[in-house]
Amino acid sequence: MADSTSLDDRLVDRLTERLRTSSRVASSDFKMTTGDIGILKSTLLPSFGLYSGLSLATFIAAETTTRVELKDWLWPSGQVINAWWSAVGRPMHETGISFSDAWASVSWTQKLLLGGVTLWGARLFARIASRSLARGKDDPRYDAVKKEPGFWKSALFKIFLPEAFVLSLISLPITMPFSMGETTLPLSLNSLGTVRALGVGLFSAGFALEVLADTQLELHRRERDDLCRHGIWSVVRHPNYLGDTLVHLSFAVLNLADSFNPIMFLGPVANYAFLRFIGGDKQTEESQEVRYQVNDPHKYQQLKQWRQEKNSFWPSVRDLINPWALAVVGCGLIGVVVEEMLRTTFTA
């Protein structure tokens, strides 16, 4: 009985510490308050500090090996590290509790969040790292920028640290929940369950979309040397980036069922903006157009035709009934059923 009481006391102390270091907006409205600034200080700045340190180390390794693509290794792995540090590592460090005690104070929805981030990040990291090692040289997307005069002298401040800041914004849905109290939304239990199911469904669909896109692209490249335009790639030109967008949106939606602040929706918005207008499909197609026009006229013509036939990111109305699009929706529904079974088993 004494041991149980001691454990309960430690959990209460740990939760009290989380509440003490956070501020929340009132449930009646979502206008910006001084509390929001406090939340940003407790999440955004620590995230930027973590990512800046990791980016500096990555920059040193990238300059040494002349491989800019090493920053892409940090993109998924850094988010996984940050999520686990926020949820478990930071409470252990600040309050002295054990891993099991810290894990016990994480809610089921937050465990889903951590599991989703870990599954997504580990798979993407393995994908990026394996392709990089097999290629044996830098990603062709970065060949042009490396030819710019004085590239390495300015790369840390023009590329690596700015991406660290973007990552800090993207990570809001996976860091803020662990410095906040209970949900700010006055929802019924049934509504909370529906919201959680929506988050799980979005994650499952997005994750399936990424896996299918990467797998089919890899198989296509082993057999042919033209553009991959079949399978899931017949829905949009960049299904992997669409999948990534759905995954990050799911992290914010999941928080609607637990610790929520509207500021965390800056995460999926920042991720979407980065994929559409900075990196992602914009950078990929700009690189493809330059390389194909010079080295592969056949692919260049395919790319021009593909742009006329398919949207870059979001499916057109006619592509919503594409069998592959429906298969992705099915994967989302399967994810909801599996989560329900797991929750019934482990929380009963």
Rank of each mutant, 00 (worst) to 15 (best):
T183K: 01
A134G: 00
L19Y: 00
L266C: 11
T183H: 02
L198M: 09
F274Q: 12
H298F: 10
T344I: 11
L172N: 03
L15E: 06
W306H: 10
K304C: 08
R20E: 02
L275F: 15
P46L: 10
R14K: 07
W75G: 01
F59K: 09
Y272G: 03
R135V: 01
S4Q: 15
G89I: 06
L119Q: 05
F251Y: 15
W103C: 01
S132K: 04
L242Y: 01
A83L: 05
V117P: 02
Y300G: 00
R67V: 12
R67I: 12
R67K: 13
T215D: 03
D8H: 00
N271S: 12
L189N: 10
D72W: 02
W152Y: 08
E94S: 05
R318M: 03
T215K: 14
A213E: 05
A134V: 09
G89A: 08
D101G: 00
L342C: 09
W108L: 09
T109Y: 04
N322D: 13
A348D: 07
R131G: 10
L303P: 01
L7F: 12
G53L: 08
Q302N: 07
S312Q: 11
A325T: 11
N255V: 07
A126F: 09
A257P: 04
L249I: 08
A144M: 12
I278Q: 10
L119F: 13
E309V: 09
T43R: 05
N255S: 10
C228R: 13
T5P: 00
D101Y: 00
S6K: 14
S204Q: 04
G136L: 12
F178A: 04
F178W: 05
I60T: 14
S130I: 13
I60V: 15
S107E: 07
F30A: 10
K137C: 03
T183W: 04
G330I: 06
E69S: 14
N240Y: 11
D296H: 11
H298S: 06
